[in-house]
Computed example of a mutant assay.
Amino acid sequence: MHLLIAWCGFVGAWLLFAGPIYQAATELEEEGFERDAFSAQIDTVEVPERPSPWWWLLPPVGYVLQRRRQTEYRRRIMAVMTQDQLERMVAFANTATGWLFVAGGAFFIALKETWELAEVYELSVLLFVLAVVVMFALCALHTIVRLRGTHQMLARSGTARNRDSMTDEPPATSDA
């Protein structure tokens, strides 16, 4: 029974991780954040000059200078964006942050459950790491495959709808 429970915990934890990853990908895609338009605007913004790498000999100073540079760049980007774009960007960032927390927590639970399963079988740390990498890859692959399948299905559906609308003849009217 102990073995069954260990396997249930392992599978459940990785499903708990795969779910938020998939949901985040679909919701963030639905946000419709226009990356192309956003990228075009970012390209017009002048990037602030990098501080000298020598400042990293004094890490706190290098960190502060880098943070100032990033803040200035962010301010410049926000200055060229419309209010609607800013609102959509904030909504996108908030959604992404929320799903990051959920998936991160689920990942830590999955690590714990994978470790416990490895202890039941008395596996080496190398096999534990291998199991984590494989399961993480499977979760990511699942999301990629599902999203591609959805895109292909929608593309075919849109093509079929367009083809049908082009070949449909206008309804005949009777003057009776």
Rank of each mutant, 00 (worst) to 15 (best):
M1I: 14
M1N: 14
M1W: 11
H2W: 06
H2N: 12
L3C: 08
A6Q: 07
F10D: 01
G12C: 03
L16C: 09
L16S: 07
G19T: 10
Y22D: 06
A24T: 06
A24Q: 11
E29R: 07
E30I: 08
E30V: 09
F33Y: 00
F33Q: 00
E34L: 14
R35M: 12
D36S: 10
A37H: 04
F38P: 08
S39I: 09
Q41W: 02
Q41P: 02
I42Q: 07
D43Q: 10
T44W: 03
P48A: 01
E49H: 00
E49N: 01
R50S: 10
W54T: 05
W55A: 01
V61G: 03
G62I: 04
G62K: 05
Q66D: 15
R67S: 08
R68Y: 03
Q70P: 06
T71P: 10
E72I: 08
E72Q: 10
R74A: 11
R75G: 02
M78F: 10
V80H: 01
T82S: 15
T82C: 14
T82L: 10
Q85H: 09
Q85P: 03
R88H: 15
R88S: 13
M89H: 14
V90P: 03
A91M: 03
A91I: 01
A96V: 06
T97S: 14
T97K: 11
T97R: 14
W99G: 01
W99C: 01
L100H: 14
L100T: 15
G105C: 11
G105H: 07
F107D: 02
F107M: 06
F107V: 02
F107C: 02
A110H: 00
A110P: 00
L111D: 07
L111N: 07
L111K: 03
T114P: 00
W115K: 02
W115P: 02
E116Y: 08
L117E: 00
L117N: 01
A118T: 06
E119K: 05
Y121I: 07
L123V: 07
S124Y: 11
V125H: 15
L126Y: 12
L127T: 14
F128C: 03
F128W: 05
V129I: 14
L130C: 14
L130Q: 11
A131W: 07
V132W: 02
V132P: 02
V132A: 05
V133C: 06
V134P: 05
V134R: 12
A137P: 12
A140V: 13
A140Y: 11
I144T: 15
V145W: 08
R146M: 09
H151K: 12
Q152K: 09
R156Q: 11
R156L: 13
A160G: 07
R161F: 10
S165G: 13
S165P: 08
M166H: 15
T167I: 14
T167R: 12
T167H: 13
P171Y: 09
P171N: 06
A172S: 13
S174R: 07
